[in-house]
Simulated assay, not measured.
Amino acid sequence: MPTDNLTHLKLDHTVILVNNLDQAVQDYTQLGFTVSPGGEHAGGISRNALIHFQDGTFLELLVMKPGARTQLLKRMYKSGLLKAYQKSAKYGMAHRFYGRALDLGAPAPEREGITDFCLLADHVAEDYLQMQKQGVQLTPPYHASRIRPDGQTVSWQMYTALDEALPFFRTDYSPKITRPTTALQHPNGVTGTQKMVLFVEDYDTTIQSYEQLFSGSPTQQTDDSVVFTLDNGAIEVVNHHKSLRHQEQALVKAQGIGRFAQVMRTDNPDFVAQMQQGNTHGLVFLET
């Protein structure tokens, strides 16, 4: 059952915006990941491929598809209309996902990378009410779906905080998907996600937002960061201005969009170095 401090929320998945999905699948396969087919999201605006891990987390390689609906979202975004509907269920999620992608401008290699990450909320009604009780402003739950390559439609509910410093949230898939063991095994030795790392400009405000979300949750604090511990991992918020982790920040800025990085669970001591030798399409992996 859910608890008042929401520490039962789990790291779920990371969204990596790519320009060419087929190329990204090929590159991640060469890096030792087992990539599974995803599908096309309802409305045909985007499609994805997925990299699943033994701890239940996954990476989502996402590409925006050209077409009339994408052009409509672009016009709504540029005119400010998409933001005007930010509090609605459907367009609130669209503003977050596609607004972030559109804000990156024309597709270019340097604009690939993590655009967002998600927490899994098993108890959608209770968790939603608890977040509201703690003062977190949310969009209404939105029913989403995608069609798998085998033709099966999977659906789920998701919602997001209006404060975009926070992650978004989803329920488990319906019908529940059981992954074959082969899809969870990766030649590079990765078994899951250990931590999401956020390098932020507005550190004090971001910390306040996470403290509001995880009220009463255990934390580890240093001079330049706070780590919020969850049921299956952690979220670390790092002060961009005070941090001495200059090499990590430079790596994130050079290879990715400039804010997010990720620490994986693996017994492979050379994993990060191996990833730096290939094309991760802007996803930056850090040492523990």
Score class of each variant (00 low, 15 high):
A125Y: 09
F285A: 11
D122C: 03
G67Y: 09
V35F: 01
A165G: 14
V63P: 00
A250L: 14
Y91N: 09
G282H: 00
Q208F: 07
P167H: 07
L162I: 14
S174K: 12
A68C: 03
P66M: 10
G56C: 12
K78R: 14
K253N: 15
P149R: 12
R75E: 15
Q26S: 14
F199E: 01
L31C: 02
T193E: 09
L9V: 08
L120D: 01
A161Q: 02
A101S: 10
D122G: 05
T14F: 07
S145Q: 14
V35E: 00
V190Q: 01
Y210R: 05
P218Y: 04
R100V: 10
Y210H: 06
L166M: 06
E40K: 14
A121Q: 01
T29P: 01
D224I: 04
A261F: 04
D12G: 06
Q26V: 11
A101K: 02
I147M: 11
V63S: 11
Q132T: 13
T115H: 08
S79M: 09
Q220Y: 09
L62I: 13
T70C: 05
K83T: 12
E201M: 07
M64L: 15
P187D: 10
Q262A: 12
K90N: 09
V238W: 00
Q208Y: 05
G256E: 00
K253I: 15
V200M: 04
Q86L: 12
S155C: 07
G38L: 04
T3W: 07
R100L: 12
F168I: 08
L244M: 12
L162S: 08
S46A: 13
K195W: 00
K176W: 10
K10S: 15
A89G: 07
K242V: 09
V226E: 00
Y128P: 03
L31V: 04
P180W: 11
R47C: 06
H41D: 08
Q23Y: 03
L21D: 01
F117D: 04
Q157L: 15
T266I: 08
S155E: 09
G67V: 13
Q194R: 14
L162N: 02
F97W: 08
G282Q: 01
C118T: 13
H281P: 00
G256Q: 02
Q134V: 07
E287C: 09
E236V: 09
K133C: 11
Q86A: 15
V190T: 04
S36L: 08
L73R: 04
D122L: 07
A89F: 07
R179E: 15
S215M: 13
S36W: 06
Q152T: 15
Q137Y: 07
D4M: 14
